[in-house]
Design a protein around this nucleic acid. Structure first.
Lengths: 154, 154
DNA sequence: ACTTGATCTAGACCTCGCTCTAGATCGTAA
DNA sequence: TTACGATCTAGAGCGAGGTCTAGATCAAGT
Protein backbone atom coordinates (compact mmCIF):
# COMPACT_ATOMS: atom_id res chain seq x y z
CA UNK A 1 0.00 0.00 0.00
CA UNK A 2 2.71 2.43 -0.89
CA UNK A 3 1.67 4.76 -3.65
CA UNK A 4 -1.48 4.77 -5.77
CA UNK A 5 -4.00 5.38 -3.08
CA UNK A 6 -5.87 8.38 -4.38
CA UNK A 7 -5.63 7.84 -8.09
CA UNK A 8 -3.90 4.50 -8.53
CA UNK A 9 -1.94 6.15 -11.32
CA UNK A 10 -1.13 4.52 -14.61
CA UNK A 11 -2.52 1.64 -16.59
CA UNK A 12 -6.07 1.58 -15.45
CA UNK A 13 -8.17 3.38 -17.98
CA UNK A 14 -6.11 5.39 -20.36
CA UNK A 15 -4.80 7.50 -17.52
CA UNK A 16 -1.53 8.91 -18.66
CA UNK A 17 -0.06 9.81 -15.32
CA UNK A 18 3.11 11.35 -16.54
CA UNK A 19 5.25 10.62 -13.55
CA UNK A 20 5.12 8.59 -10.38
CA UNK A 21 7.99 10.81 -9.33
CA UNK A 22 8.57 11.31 -5.66
CA UNK A 23 9.96 14.85 -5.88
CA UNK A 24 7.55 17.57 -4.88
CA UNK A 25 6.19 19.67 -7.69
CA UNK A 26 5.71 23.39 -8.07
CA UNK A 27 2.32 24.79 -8.84
CA UNK A 28 3.45 25.37 -12.40
CA UNK A 29 4.40 21.74 -12.84
CA UNK A 30 1.10 20.62 -11.47
CA UNK A 31 -0.73 22.99 -13.75
CA UNK A 32 1.03 21.38 -16.66
CA UNK A 33 0.30 17.86 -15.49
CA UNK A 34 -3.34 18.41 -14.71
CA UNK A 35 -4.34 20.86 -17.37
CA UNK A 36 -5.61 23.25 -14.73
CA UNK A 37 -4.26 26.78 -14.65
CA UNK A 38 -2.19 27.89 -11.69
CA UNK A 39 -5.01 30.28 -10.94
CA UNK A 40 -7.46 27.43 -10.92
CA UNK A 41 -5.19 25.39 -8.67
CA UNK A 42 -5.08 28.14 -6.07
CA UNK A 43 -8.78 28.64 -6.50
CA UNK A 44 -9.52 24.96 -5.94
CA UNK A 45 -7.42 25.02 -2.83
CA UNK A 46 -9.21 28.05 -1.44
CA UNK A 47 -12.49 26.36 -2.18
CA UNK A 48 -11.47 23.38 -0.14
CA UNK A 49 -11.44 21.02 -3.07
CA UNK A 50 -8.21 19.31 -2.17
CA UNK A 51 -7.99 16.04 -0.30
CA UNK A 52 -5.45 17.47 2.11
CA UNK A 53 -3.42 20.57 2.86
CA UNK A 54 -0.70 21.37 0.37
CA UNK A 55 2.79 21.55 1.78
CA UNK A 56 4.81 24.73 1.54
CA UNK A 57 8.49 25.50 1.21
CA UNK A 58 10.16 27.66 3.83
CA UNK A 59 9.58 30.50 1.43
CA UNK A 60 5.86 29.85 1.25
CA UNK A 61 5.68 28.20 -2.15
CA UNK A 62 3.36 25.26 -2.62
CA UNK A 63 4.92 21.82 -2.96
CA UNK A 64 2.59 19.21 -4.38
CA UNK A 65 3.01 15.51 -3.81
CA UNK A 66 2.17 12.76 -6.26
CA UNK A 67 -0.98 12.17 -4.23
CA UNK A 68 -2.05 15.73 -4.68
CA UNK A 69 -1.60 15.38 -8.39
CA UNK A 70 -3.54 12.14 -8.56
CA UNK A 71 -6.34 13.67 -6.62
CA UNK A 72 -6.37 16.66 -8.91
CA UNK A 73 -6.47 14.41 -11.93
CA UNK A 74 -9.53 12.76 -10.55
CA UNK A 75 -11.00 16.16 -9.88
CA UNK A 76 -10.42 17.06 -13.49
CA UNK A 77 -12.26 13.98 -14.64
CA UNK A 78 -15.13 14.64 -12.32
CA UNK A 79 -15.34 18.24 -13.45
CA UNK A 80 -15.09 17.30 -17.11
CA UNK A 81 -18.02 15.05 -16.60
CA UNK A 82 -19.98 17.86 -15.08
CA UNK A 83 -19.72 17.37 -11.36
CA UNK A 84 -20.36 20.71 -9.69
CA UNK A 85 -17.67 22.16 -7.48
CA UNK A 86 -20.00 21.83 -4.52
CA UNK A 87 -20.13 18.06 -4.89
CA UNK A 88 -16.45 17.86 -5.47
CA UNK A 89 -15.98 19.77 -2.27
CA UNK A 90 -18.18 17.37 -0.39
CA UNK A 91 -16.19 14.47 -1.72
CA UNK A 92 -12.95 16.15 -0.71
CA UNK A 93 -14.34 16.73 2.75
CA UNK A 94 -15.18 13.07 3.14
CA UNK A 95 -11.69 12.12 2.11
CA UNK A 96 -10.12 14.65 4.44
CA UNK A 97 -12.24 13.36 7.26
CA UNK A 98 -10.42 10.06 6.83
CA UNK A 99 -11.52 6.42 6.73
CA UNK A 100 -14.92 5.37 7.94
CA UNK A 101 -17.11 7.12 5.43
CA UNK A 102 -16.37 5.06 2.36
CA UNK A 103 -20.01 4.25 1.92
CA UNK A 104 -20.79 7.93 1.55
CA UNK A 105 -17.98 8.42 -0.90
CA UNK A 106 -19.20 5.48 -2.87
CA UNK A 107 -22.68 6.89 -2.94
CA UNK A 108 -21.51 10.25 -4.10
CA UNK A 109 -19.52 8.76 -6.94
CA UNK A 110 -22.19 6.34 -7.94
CA UNK A 111 -24.79 9.07 -8.07
CA UNK A 112 -22.50 11.03 -10.26
CA UNK A 113 -21.92 8.07 -12.48
CA UNK A 114 -25.61 7.80 -13.03
CA UNK A 115 -25.71 11.42 -14.04
CA UNK A 116 -22.90 10.79 -16.46
CA UNK A 117 -24.77 7.87 -17.95
CA UNK A 118 -27.83 10.01 -18.38
CA UNK A 119 -25.71 12.66 -19.96
CA UNK A 120 -24.21 10.23 -22.41
CA UNK A 121 -27.63 8.98 -23.38
CA UNK A 122 -28.86 12.53 -23.82
CA UNK A 123 -25.89 13.39 -25.96
CA UNK A 124 -26.44 10.35 -28.08
CA UNK A 125 -29.98 11.39 -28.68
CA UNK A 126 -28.86 14.88 -29.58
CA UNK A 127 -26.34 13.38 -31.88
CA UNK A 128 -28.93 11.42 -33.71
CA UNK A 129 -31.14 14.47 -34.12
CA UNK A 130 -28.21 16.44 -35.45
CA UNK A 131 -27.20 13.66 -37.75
CA UNK A 132 -30.64 13.48 -39.15
CA UNK A 133 -30.69 17.25 -39.66
CA UNK A 134 -27.32 17.08 -41.35
CA UNK A 135 -28.80 14.44 -43.61
CA UNK A 136 -31.65 16.74 -44.52
CA UNK A 137 -29.26 19.44 -45.61
CA UNK A 138 -26.94 17.04 -47.35
CA UNK A 139 -29.79 15.58 -49.32
CA UNK A 140 -31.00 19.00 -50.22
CA UNK A 141 -27.57 19.96 -51.45
CA UNK A 142 -27.19 16.72 -53.37
CA UNK A 143 -30.44 17.32 -55.21
CA UNK A 144 -29.13 20.73 -56.11
CA UNK A 145 -31.16 23.85 -55.63
CA UNK A 146 -33.97 22.13 -57.51
CA UNK A 147 -36.94 24.29 -56.79
CA UNK A 148 -38.11 26.92 -54.37
CA UNK A 149 -39.81 24.20 -52.35
CA UNK A 150 -37.43 24.72 -49.50
CA UNK A 151 -37.74 27.64 -47.24
CA UNK A 152 -38.36 27.28 -43.53
CA UNK A 153 -38.35 31.04 -43.26
CA UNK A 154 -41.69 31.51 -45.02
CA UNK B 1 -43.77 19.66 -48.54
CA UNK B 2 -46.43 20.92 -46.23
CA UNK B 3 -45.42 20.70 -42.60
CA UNK B 4 -42.28 19.23 -41.10
CA UNK B 5 -39.77 21.55 -42.61
CA UNK B 6 -37.84 22.79 -39.64
CA UNK B 7 -38.05 19.82 -37.37
CA UNK B 8 -39.78 17.10 -39.37
CA UNK B 9 -41.75 16.38 -36.22
CA UNK B 10 -42.65 12.92 -35.10
CA UNK B 11 -41.25 9.49 -35.73
CA UNK B 12 -37.71 10.29 -36.64
CA UNK B 13 -35.54 9.82 -33.61
CA UNK B 14 -37.54 9.49 -30.50
CA UNK B 15 -38.85 12.99 -30.95
CA UNK B 16 -42.09 13.21 -29.10
CA UNK B 17 -43.57 16.20 -30.83
CA UNK B 18 -46.71 16.46 -28.83
CA UNK B 19 -48.89 18.07 -31.43
CA UNK B 20 -48.77 18.84 -35.11
CA UNK B 21 -51.61 21.18 -34.27
CA UNK B 22 -52.19 24.13 -36.54
CA UNK B 23 -53.53 26.50 -33.88
CA UNK B 24 -51.11 29.12 -32.71
CA UNK B 25 -49.68 28.65 -29.25
CA UNK B 26 -49.16 31.02 -26.37
CA UNK B 27 -45.75 31.46 -24.87
CA UNK B 28 -46.85 29.40 -21.93
CA UNK B 29 -47.84 26.49 -24.13
CA UNK B 30 -44.54 26.65 -25.93
CA UNK B 31 -42.68 26.74 -22.67
CA UNK B 32 -44.44 23.57 -21.72
CA UNK B 33 -43.74 21.86 -25.02
CA UNK B 34 -40.09 22.81 -25.23
CA UNK B 35 -39.06 22.69 -21.64
CA UNK B 36 -37.77 26.25 -21.84
CA UNK B 37 -39.10 28.81 -19.39
CA UNK B 38 -41.19 31.69 -20.72
CA UNK B 39 -38.36 33.91 -19.61
CA UNK B 40 -35.91 31.90 -21.64
CA UNK B 41 -38.20 32.03 -24.64
CA UNK B 42 -38.31 35.80 -24.55
CA UNK B 43 -34.60 35.87 -23.92
CA UNK B 44 -33.89 33.64 -26.92
CA UNK B 45 -36.03 35.85 -29.08
CA UNK B 46 -34.22 38.99 -27.97
CA UNK B 47 -30.93 37.27 -28.69
CA UNK B 48 -32.03 36.58 -32.23
CA UNK B 49 -32.06 32.84 -31.79
CA UNK B 50 -35.32 32.25 -33.60
CA UNK B 51 -35.60 31.26 -37.21
CA UNK B 52 -38.15 33.95 -37.88
CA UNK B 53 -40.15 36.70 -36.22
CA UNK B 54 -42.83 35.52 -33.85
CA UNK B 55 -46.34 36.64 -34.70
CA UNK B 56 -48.33 38.73 -32.28
CA UNK B 57 -52.01 39.04 -31.47
CA UNK B 58 -53.68 42.41 -31.80
CA UNK B 59 -53.08 42.77 -28.09
CA UNK B 60 -49.35 42.17 -28.43
CA UNK B 61 -49.13 38.61 -27.20
CA UNK B 62 -46.84 36.18 -28.97
CA UNK B 63 -48.44 33.49 -31.12
CA UNK B 64 -46.13 30.64 -31.96
CA UNK B 65 -46.59 28.40 -34.96
CA UNK B 66 -45.74 24.72 -35.16
CA UNK B 67 -42.62 25.74 -37.05
CA UNK B 68 -41.50 27.95 -34.25
CA UNK B 69 -41.93 25.09 -31.85
CA UNK B 70 -40.03 22.68 -34.04
CA UNK B 71 -37.21 25.13 -34.37
CA UNK B 72 -37.14 25.63 -30.65
CA UNK B 73 -37.04 21.91 -30.08
CA UNK B 74 -34.01 21.71 -32.27
CA UNK B 75 -32.51 24.61 -30.36
CA UNK B 76 -33.05 22.72 -27.17
CA UNK B 77 -31.24 19.70 -28.52
CA UNK B 78 -28.37 21.78 -29.74
CA UNK B 79 -28.12 23.56 -26.43
CA UNK B 80 -28.36 20.34 -24.48
CA UNK B 81 -25.45 19.07 -26.45
CA UNK B 82 -23.47 22.14 -25.59
CA UNK B 83 -23.77 24.39 -28.60
CA UNK B 84 -23.09 27.94 -27.44
CA UNK B 85 -25.78 30.53 -27.96
CA UNK B 86 -23.46 32.35 -30.33
CA UNK B 87 -23.38 29.40 -32.72
CA UNK B 88 -27.07 28.88 -32.39
CA UNK B 89 -27.53 32.48 -33.32
CA UNK B 90 -25.38 32.08 -36.38
CA UNK B 91 -27.41 29.11 -37.43
CA UNK B 92 -30.63 31.02 -36.92
CA UNK B 93 -29.25 33.85 -39.00
CA UNK B 94 -28.46 31.51 -41.85
CA UNK B 95 -31.96 30.12 -41.73
CA UNK B 96 -33.50 33.57 -41.59
CA UNK B 97 -31.42 34.62 -44.56
CA UNK B 98 -33.29 31.96 -46.52
CA UNK B 99 -32.25 29.30 -49.02
CA UNK B 100 -28.87 29.38 -50.67
CA UNK B 101 -26.65 28.84 -47.67
CA UNK B 102 -27.39 25.23 -46.93
CA UNK B 103 -23.75 24.33 -47.24
CA UNK B 104 -22.92 26.70 -44.40
CA UNK B 105 -25.70 25.33 -42.26
CA UNK B 106 -24.50 21.85 -42.93
CA UNK B 107 -21.00 22.80 -41.95
CA UNK B 108 -22.12 24.38 -38.75
CA UNK B 109 -24.10 21.34 -37.76
CA UNK B 110 -21.44 18.92 -38.77
CA UNK B 111 -18.81 20.77 -36.80
CA UNK B 112 -21.06 20.63 -33.83
CA UNK B 113 -21.66 16.95 -34.30
CA UNK B 114 -17.95 16.38 -34.13
CA UNK B 115 -17.83 18.26 -30.87
CA UNK B 116 -20.64 16.12 -29.56
CA UNK B 117 -18.78 12.98 -30.55
CA UNK B 118 -15.70 14.20 -28.75
CA UNK B 119 -17.80 15.00 -25.76
CA UNK B 120 -19.31 11.56 -25.70
CA UNK B 121 -15.90 9.98 -25.89
CA UNK B 122 -14.65 12.20 -23.09
CA UNK B 123 -17.63 11.33 -20.95
CA UNK B 124 -17.09 7.67 -21.57
CA UNK B 125 -13.56 7.97 -20.38
CA UNK B 126 -14.68 9.85 -17.31
CA UNK B 127 -17.22 7.18 -16.72
CA UNK B 128 -14.66 4.47 -16.76
CA UNK B 129 -12.45 6.35 -14.33
CA UNK B 130 -15.39 6.85 -12.02
CA UNK B 131 -16.45 3.27 -12.33
CA UNK B 132 -13.02 2.12 -11.42
CA UNK B 133 -12.96 4.43 -8.42
CA UNK B 134 -16.36 3.17 -7.36
CA UNK B 135 -14.93 -0.31 -7.59
CA UNK B 136 -12.09 0.65 -5.31
CA UNK B 137 -14.48 1.84 -2.63
CA UNK B 138 -16.83 -1.07 -3.11
CA UNK B 139 -14.01 -3.52 -2.70
CA UNK B 140 -12.81 -1.72 0.36
CA UNK B 141 -16.26 -1.88 1.87
CA UNK B 142 -16.67 -5.54 0.96
CA UNK B 143 -13.44 -6.39 2.70
CA UNK B 144 -14.80 -4.66 5.74
CA UNK B 145 -12.84 -2.11 7.66
CA UNK B 146 -10.04 -4.63 7.84
CA UNK B 147 -7.10 -2.59 8.97
CA UNK B 148 -5.89 0.96 9.07
CA UNK B 149 -4.12 0.41 5.78
CA UNK B 150 -6.41 2.80 4.03
CA UNK B 151 -6.05 6.47 4.42
CA UNK B 152 -5.34 8.80 1.53
CA UNK B 153 -5.35 11.70 3.94
CA UNK B 154 -2.12 10.72 5.64
C1' DA C 1 -67.88 45.73 -13.73
C1' DC C 2 -64.53 43.17 -11.38
C1' DT C 3 -61.24 39.82 -10.44
C1' DT C 4 -57.70 36.79 -11.82
C1' DG C 5 -54.11 35.01 -14.25
C1' DA C 6 -51.21 35.14 -18.27
C1' DT C 7 -48.31 38.26 -20.87
C1' DC C 8 -45.91 42.39 -21.97
C1' DT C 9 -41.22 45.41 -21.75
C1' DA C 10 -36.88 46.95 -19.99
C1' DG C 11 -33.51 46.17 -17.40
C1' DA C 12 -31.41 44.67 -13.02
C1' DC C 13 -29.60 40.65 -10.93
C1' DC C 14 -27.82 35.90 -10.17
C1' DT C 15 -24.87 31.55 -10.19
C1' DC C 16 -21.03 29.16 -11.78
C1' DG C 17 -16.44 28.63 -12.54
C1' DC C 18 -12.89 30.46 -13.17
C1' DT C 19 -9.48 34.54 -14.62
C1' DC C 20 -6.99 38.52 -13.89
C1' DT C 21 -4.78 42.42 -11.30
C1' DA C 22 -1.78 44.57 -8.01
C1' DG C 23 1.84 44.67 -5.43
C1' DA C 24 5.07 41.96 -2.81
C1' DT C 25 8.42 38.02 -2.37
C1' DC C 26 11.20 34.08 -3.69
C1' DG C 27 14.89 31.88 -5.97
C1' DT C 28 18.05 30.99 -9.51
C1' DA C 29 21.24 32.15 -13.14
C1' DA C 30 24.57 35.39 -14.85
C1' DT D 1 24.45 41.94 -7.05
C1' DT D 2 21.34 42.39 -10.11
C1' DA D 3 17.86 40.73 -12.86
C1' DC D 4 14.16 38.04 -14.08
C1' DG D 5 10.70 34.71 -13.91
C1' DA D 6 7.77 32.05 -10.92
C1' DT D 7 4.84 32.40 -6.94
C1' DC D 8 2.47 34.58 -3.23
C1' DT D 9 -2.27 36.90 -1.24
C1' DA D 10 -6.53 39.28 -1.45
C1' DG D 11 -9.87 40.55 -3.94
C1' DA D 12 -12.01 42.42 -8.18
C1' DG D 13 -13.78 41.16 -12.74
C1' DC D 14 -15.73 38.40 -16.32
C1' DG D 15 -18.63 35.58 -19.76
C1' DA D 16 -22.23 32.46 -20.25
C1' DG D 17 -26.80 31.67 -19.74
C1' DG D 18 -30.36 32.62 -17.99
C1' DT D 19 -33.78 34.41 -14.00
C1' DC D 20 -36.39 37.77 -11.75
C1' DT D 21 -38.72 42.28 -10.84
C1' DA D 22 -41.73 46.15 -11.55
C1' DG D 23 -45.34 48.05 -13.33
C1' DA D 24 -48.55 47.90 -17.06
C1' DT D 25 -51.86 45.44 -20.19
C1' DC D 26 -54.73 41.81 -21.92
C1' DA D 27 -58.38 38.41 -21.82
C1' DA D 28 -61.64 35.41 -19.80
C1' DG D 29 -64.89 33.98 -16.23
C1' DT D 30 -68.79 35.37 -13.00
Amino acid sequence: MTPTTAGMASTTAGMTTTKPSAEPLSIGDVAEQTGLSVHALRFYERQGLLAGPVQRTSGGRRRYTAFDVEWLQICVKLRESGMPLADLKQFAELVRRGPGNEAERLQLLDTHRQRVDAQIRALEECRSVITWKVGVYAEHLARGEAGGLWDPTA
